[in-house]
Amino acid sequence: MHFEGTFDIKAPRQKVWDFISIPNNVAKCLPDLQKLEVPAPDRFKATVKAGVGFVKGTFNFEFTMLDMQPPTHAKLSGHGSGTGSTVDLETAIDLSDLPDGGTRMAWKADAKVGGLIASVGQRLLEGAAQKLVSNLFACLKKQLEG
């Protein structure tokens, strides 16, 4: 599944970069966060509650920040498992300046889901994943502007 989107943030690019390059800030935007560990500045482990339709459960995710090109480009790669399922997530973020001093964030995400959720929840999967990913980025925007 591939998703992408663009949104504008009323904050300068360096501020946006500083914010998103800190795992704690990103993790706050994960759905129903239960637990967070940050063993290294570019890695974090998160336990979240998520699901599709009636298939809900706890997932243990491990995220790594890759290809960091401050303050322009970053990648976040995550692998999660739980509830008889697996999720492999690759996201990329590109930041650019806007004439009004704000920042444009262009994001892409590729998700591969396996196991119970992929098979039983597949009718709802695309919509649910889209919502999850969009919420994540909307949350980042809110935190930066708020």
Binding site: V113, G114, G115, A118, S119
Partner: peptide, 15 residues
Amino acid sequence: YSKDTGQLLASTFMD
């Protein structure tokens, strides 16, 4: 089956 991930999509009597 899903062609890209190889998941069985008809995995219950719903599908």
